[in-house]
Amino acid sequence: MAAPSEPSDNELIKSCLSGSQAHARRLYDRYKNYVARVIRNMENDPEAVQDLLQQTFIKAFSGLKSFKGDSGFKTWITTIAVNTAKNYRNKKTRRGRHPKVSIDHTGEENGAALELKDESANPQKQLLTKEMGTVIGAALDMLSEEHREVISLWNEGFSYDEIGAMTKTLPQTVGSRLHYARAQLQKILTPYIKGNKE
């Protein structure tokens, strides 16, 4: 007999609702890396990521009954993750604990300059040195919440329409936010990129 295929998200959700802890774990394993990434891309504090991941999954599993299935589980849990991270950031900002990382402290003296010679020969991840990662992380941290949100969701492959639906904005607004977010990031990053002239 052929090996059984992986159950779909909806099948796992159905059995989670019927009490299957094993299938809850399976759903968690399916999305944990993705959710961790979305959260980290919203909130740079590594200590907060694990806590926010826990909060996201607890909210998702507790609210499974309200999951309508119209938009897919991935979209649904993304919305929860983004809102959980936003709430955390808002609280942190209100408490005045928002870390302002200065780009100046992570500049070229740390070897942050990066040579981009032949993009086609280098997978994306190889382009990123540790130092450059720090610079970009700091640059992302300087973005407004809306800009950070769209750039994080865009990176996960969502279309403007999908991001609009998740953030309750028009696709045109998503496009506009992405344009300004990129412009700001580009402004910060260009001095660190060598060999970018034609």
Partner: peptide, 23 residues
């Protein structure tokens, strides 16, 4: 456009790095 693409690729690479979480 080339500059935009380069910085965008870098940001994308940074955003795609898996954070270390004790799952």
């Amino acid at each position: 456009f080339r500059e935009l693409k380069k910085s965008s690729d870098l940001v994308s690479a940074r955003l795609s790095v898996q954070p270390s979480v004790d799952f």
